[in-house]
């Protein structure tokens, strides 16, 4: 430990300079980051719990995970914000579209924008969508654009889903209609072939045919109801707007907000970098000594031989310092002729 402490003392000023430079720059950067960061957020009330409330864990498909409406929508938004097409659509709705067009590396630009979004849940039905930037006007624009693009995407997905469902139900409807017509024809044929009164066996057969027809007609009605539901439900939800209500609209912030975390991160990185540099310097300074640190180093200068060591004199040893020693020696050698003391050789 002593060699490391000696190195620390030897490079004290250099270490102080490095720390002042790195920590100073880091703290300055953190301060600038903190004072020029503006966070704008929207609070959203998610009313409807999805029918797919229970999702399975990939690690254990048998174990269901309860997902609230808020966390489901937050996950959905998070996933959308990781896609370039979504972020591109968002940016193109804002004043950043010019910057996107001018960006040399579009992928990096979009990734940077995506990372500036933050989606958090608050309870079971509340979530916030925030955007952090150095321009207070950009935040509300970006949040509003993200919500708008999300709404477009959801509506588009609903239409696509209802179209697909309608196609499927139409096919099932055609099949059910055929079955119902067949059942009706069989019953009519039976009635034509067997005039009343019917025997017990004939009556039983007719009841079976009637039951088959009833089932076919019920299925037909059910499929028609599903078709109506698939067509109307998304439209009803979209019109009502109940699924995704923006409770608090994003605002242009007048005072810096949301920069604490990045500023703390910058300061922490600067602190760690300074400490790492100093540690490296002390390690290298100790392992690779470049100065004569004692007689052992001088012994390596053979054939030159060490013949004497003159101790260092500090003021802690009474009132005598190295300058005092020189003056004392001069007084003995030169007596009263000594008049001034210049730089000591």
């Amino acid at each position: 430990m002593r060699p490391y402490l000696a190195t620390l003392r030897r490079y004290g000023w250099l270490i102080a300079a490095i720390l002042a430079l790195v920590w100073g720059a880091g703290l300055a950067s953190a301060y600038v980051d903190y004072t020029t960061t503006f966070e704008s957020d929207a609070t959203i009330w998610v009313l409807r719990a999805s029918p797919e409330l229970l999702v399975t864990s990939p690690s254990d498909p048998s174990a269901p995970i309860l997902q609230t409406a808020a966390s489901q929508q937050a996950d959905l938004l998070d996933q959308l914000l990781q896609t370039q097409s979504f972020v591109r659509d968002v940016v193109q709705k804002t004043s950043l579209s010019a910057a996107l067009a001018a960006a040399q590396d579009e992928r990096r630009f979009l990734a940077s924008v995506g990372k500036s979004f933050q989606v958090d849940t608050h309870g079971t039905n509340l979530l916030t969508v925030a955007y952090i930037s150095h321009d207070p006007k950009i935040g509300p624009e970006m949040v509003n654009a993200a919500l708008a693009v999300r709404a477009d995407r959801v509506a588009q997905a609903s239409v696509t889903f209802s179209a697909a469902a309608s196609t499927l139900y139409q096919q099932q409807l055609a099949s059910a209609q055929t079955q119902a017509l067949d059942a009706q024809k069989k019953l009519d044929d039976f009635d034509a072939e067997h005039p009343a009164p019917l025997s017990d066996i004939q009556q039983h057969s007719r009841d079976q045919l009637r039951l088959t027809l009833d089932f076919a007609q019920i299925r037909l009605g059910d499929i028609r109801g599903r078709i109506d539901q698939a067509t109307l439900a998304p439209a009803v939800l979209a019109v009502s707007g109940m699924e995704f209500q923006v409770v608090d609209q994003p605002r242009v912030e007048a005072t810096p907000r949301g920069g604490t975390k990045p500023a703390a991160m910058t300061a922490a990185i600067a602190f760690a970098a300074g400490a790492a540099l100093v540690t490296l310097l002390v390690l290298l300074g100790t392992i690779l000594p470049s100065h004569a640190t004692g007689p052992a180093d001088v012994a390596r200068l053979a054939p030159m031989k060490l013949i004497a060591s003159v101790p260092r004199v500090s003021r802690a040893q009474g009132s005598v310092g190295s300058g005092d020693v020189r003056r004392s020696l001069g007084a003995i050698a030169f007596g009263g002729r000594r008049e001034k003391s210049g730089p000591r050789g």
């Binding site: 001088v298 200068l301 060591s309």
Partner: peptide, 12 residues
């Protein structure tokens, strides 16, 4: 020959 100046007490 070498003279080690301002040496630590342990080197003297």
């Amino acid at each position: 020959c070498i003279v080690l100046n301002r040496a630590k007490p342990s080197s003297v």
